[in-house]
């Protein structure tokens, strides 16, 4: 259902007034308190913020891993998780349709979450074969190309437990790319890595950004934000408190909380 015709100039992601409350009633935790965000096509948005500020939750709301409490998320003009009828009434989408929506959004996790019982190659082939119904031969060809792109041609038959953290994360990126996503979400992709392995993952992400992929990256790597991001967003307490070009946000922060955060991270 792409009802609204998205044009090249429209943003890839439009987040409007998104709230997320975990739990119910008085015990509910209000994690997102009204987030608005536009992500332009082919741009890289880096989301910064202290832990508990709702960065990861925002990411997980964009691909429907979390159901939003209020607001709306549109990806490529398409409303995520719901269908709005002519009278403006919302209908929850069938899980099959939501699965289809998710298949167009790649996601990379902090802790990789590779499938341990499958080789690197099988991890990358799994979704194209099982979700897209691609032939095994075609999926294999594509998986080999992607693993080469992330620099792991010599590790295709290794199982995740035989790979370093950096290698696992690069396989995870290849696995997400195998579905030809129009948007890639990175949830602290380097936070679980040993310091000497961070660079190889960031290099793959930088290469991906250069190829024109639309990316939203939650990270603490200020260097990456400065070098690769088109747009930097700072979140605190479930809301976006400052955003803009990296040079403005990182070098001339107007918000005291951001200044404080940068002083701690750098």
């Amino acid at each position: 259902m792409t009802g609204t015709t998205a044009t090249e100039s429209d943003p890839m992601v439009v987040v409007r007034g998104v709230h997320k409350v975990f739990g119910r009633g008085a015990d509910g935790v209000h994690v997102l308190t009204g987030v608005d965000l536009d992500v332009a096509r082919g741009s890289v948005t880096v989301v910064l913020g202290p832990s508990g500020s709702g960065k990861s939750t925002l990411l997980r709301c964009i691909n429907e891993l979390e159901e939003i409490t209020a607001g709306s998320v549109r990806v490529d003009g398409e409303l995520m998780g719901y269908r709005e009828d002519a009278k403006g009434v919302l209908h929850r989408l069938h899980p099959k349709v939501i699965a289809k929506q998710r298949s167009r959004i790649g996601m990379v996790f902090q802790r990789f979450h590779l499938f341990p019982h499958k080789t690197a190659l099988e991890n990358v082939m799994e979704a194209p074969v099982q979700v897209r119904g691609l032939s095994r031969a075609a999926a294999r060809q594509r998986a080999l190309e992607l693993l080469e792109r992330v620099g792991l041609s010599d590790r295709v038959d290794h199982y995740p437990a035989q790979l370093s953290g950096g290698q696992q994360q690069r396989v995870a990126i290849a696995r997400a790319l195998a579905m030809d996503p129009e948007l890639m979400l990175f949830d602290e992709p380097t936070s679980a890595l040993d310091p000497e392995l961070v660079g190889e993952v960031l290099a793959v992400m930088q290469d991906l950004a250069r190829s024109g992929m639309t990316m939203i990256v939650v990270t603490h790597e200020i260097g990456f934000a400065r070098e690769v991001a088109d747009h930097v967003v700072f979140m605190d307490d479930g809301a976006i408190v400052e955003e803009g070009a990296p040079a403005d946000v990182l070098d001339n922060p107007s918000e005291p909380r951001l200044r404080d955060f940068l002083a701690h991270v750098l």
Partner: peptide, 15 residues
């Protein structure tokens, strides 16, 4: 996390 990763790839519950 295994279920989440599979979900994020667009796999359905049964699979």
């Amino acid at each position: 996390g295994q279920t989440e990763a599979a979900k994020a790839l667009g796999m359905k519950d049964g699979k």
